[in-house]
Write a protein that binds this DNA or RNA. Structure first.
Length: 484
RNA sequence: GGCGACGUACCCAAGUGGCUAAGGGGGAGGUCUGCAAAACCUUUAUGCAGCGGUUCGAAUCCGCUCGUCGCCUCCA
């Protein structure tokens, strides 16, 4: 039984989709006017994991993630770069897809662009006018918030409070300061579409109303996005959609917390952001994903190199164990010496339940990761006891499968140790080829065979300086990339 | 001004009424090792911002205080 926190009620609720095992989920994507930063990555990764977990639980999920490809910021950017709005949108949409691919975030099932749905938006706006919820004004169309009973129910705001706390210049032509644009007339030189109210473009919020109902129906299960979208964006979507259909728009509203830098929200306007591209220059994507899953999705998470380095350590701990497991499985045979798997066996019996328990509790990935590392420790302990034989083999294999299965849900632990180390060499820009490295190890082996310890240590220290750590084992020396 | 969230060890972080307060990183000691590394073991919060209250029992519920942050404007 999955429980999830619903922003609408402010409580954790039992997840019961509108239609059996079918889950329709809409997550607000990006406005394609600039490079994406880590905050965008968090939202993408969080909802990707939620989708993966729901599917793991047997739900049939349809995931829609939109791209806003026409908007004031795009127009401003186009003017600045002296190119068309289409080119701006195309360029940054492409960058976005590229970032998502590098991050290892799966695609949504449907990734609609706003400009492909202008007709549907116009239809929605017409309906809102016909029903008396919207009014045209000098080529614009506004939604009249006072007409929608329940405006503010998602964000917990009251219109009177909004009025008195207004921090923006009020457009006096509107009936209420918080009436928002469904349609904006275009100024000279701006892109436009023909409409019953003249040439113009849609307001931001209406695209999600039009596209979500097109692909997921008038009522659907989950609507997600960053917490900064709660007001006004999602509040306005509710007003538009429910005014249009008279039906419940969304059953569960989910919002991820912010990334902070020096405790402040990472944002374009503060200028304290790091682009996904910049971060992936220094860190492996799996490290970034792990970092973002190491805190609960609704909590703020402080970005820092120290934190990313810790995440790198954690992932490396897994791959070090993965290497041990593989060596064990490739060698073990012979005498049946299952060791004492009791502690490990106990944890194996409870592990899957602990994992799903954590994930069922509002997708508590941080807690789930704790259980994974608990299992890793027990596995290491078991391997330390040097068990052998078929029984031991089956135990280790089963634990390994559990780690891969649960790691798979979290989209981590999905490489071979070699892939991990070679990715680390790349991302840490080590000026050392694997070939040269193996030569050095041979060189050192010769010294060790001669018990020339000072020469052996010299080679090891030299490699350490270059970011490589050597480990001497009974059957030879292996290497790892130094992390952290 | 209105609304809301958060404050757990040296750092990050889970835990939201009841066994010894997960897990990761770091520190100290140990086992192993030619020495290391890795791994494992022990240790590092009689206490969960502070003060009251409810309760047989609270980090967990309630109130107040202090501190930090967010939304109220485009924002993931």
């Amino acid at each position: 039984m999955i429980k999830l926190y619903n922003t609408m009620t402010g409580k954790k609720e039992t997840f019961e989709p509108l239609n059996g095992k079918k889950v329709n989920m809409y997550v607000c994507g990006i406005t394609a006017y600039d490079m994406c930063h880590l905050g965008h990555a968090r939202s993408a990764i969080v909802f990707d994991i939620i989708k993966r977990y729901l599917r793991y639980c047997g739900y049939d999920v349809t995931h829609v993630r939109n791209i806003t490809d026409i908007d004031d910021k795009i127009i401003a950017r186009a003017a600045k770069e002296k190119i068309s709005t289409e080119e701006v949108a195309r360029k940054y949409t492409q960058e976005y897809y590229n970032d998502m691919k590098l991050l290892g975030v799966s695609s949504a099932d449907i990734e609609p662009n706003a400009t492909d749905h202008i007709e549907a938006m116009i239809e929605s706006i017409k309906t809102l006018i016909d029903k008396g919820y919207a009014y045209p004004l000098d080529g614009d169309v506004y939604f009249e918030v006072k007409k929608f009973e329940g405006y503010g129910k998602l964000s917990g705001k009251k219109l009177d409070d909004l009025e008195s706390g207004a921090r923006v210049d009020v457009d006096n032509r509107k009936k209420h300061p918080f009436d928002f644009a469904l349609w904006k007339s275009s100024k000279e030189g701006e892109p436009f579409w023909e409409s019953p109210w003249g040439k113009g473009r849609p307001g931001w919020h209406i695209e999600c109303t039009a596209m979500s109902s097109k692909y997921l129906g008038e009522s659907f299960d989950i609507h997600g996005g960053g917490a900064d979208l709660i007001f006004p964006h999602h509040e306005n979507e509710i007003a538009q959609s429910e005014a249009c259909t008279g039906k419940l728009f969304v059953k569960y509203w989910m919002h991820n917390g912010f990334i902070t830098v020096d405790k402040e929200k990472m944002s374009k306007s503060l200028g304290n952001f790091f682009t996904i591209k910049e971060i992936l220059e220094k860190y492996e994507p799996e490290v970034v994903r792990y970092f973002l899953l190491s805190a609960h999705y609704r909590s703020p998470i402080e970005f820092s190199d120290a934190q990313l380095n810790e995440s790198e350590h954690s992932i490396d701990r897994y791959y070090t164990t993965a290497l041990r497991v593989r060596e064990f499985l490739s060698h073990t045979g012979g005498k049946d010496k299952p060791g004492n798997p009791n502690e490990l066996q106990g944890l194996m019996d409870s592990f899957m339940g602990k994992f799903t328990g954590a994930m069922n509790d509002d997708f508590n990935t941080a807690s789930a990761l704790g259980y994974l590392f608990e299992l890793i420790r027990e596995l290491n302990k078991y391997l330390d006891a040097k068990p052998s034989g078929q029984g031991a083999r089956e135990v280790v294999q089963r634990v390994n499968e559990m780690l891969l299965e649960t790691g798979g849900v979290l989209n981590i632990f999905n490489k071979s140790p070699e892939e991990w180390y070679s990715a680390l060499i790349k991302v840490k820009k080590l000026a050392l080829s694997e070939e040269l490295l193996l030569q050095k190890i041979e060189l050192r082996k010769a010294a060790r065979d001669n018990k020339d310890w000072s020469e052996a240590d010299r080679v090891r220290d030299e490699l350490y300086e270059q970011g490589i750590i050597l480990e001497d084992k009974p059957d030879g020396t292996s290497w790892r990339v130094r992390v952290g």
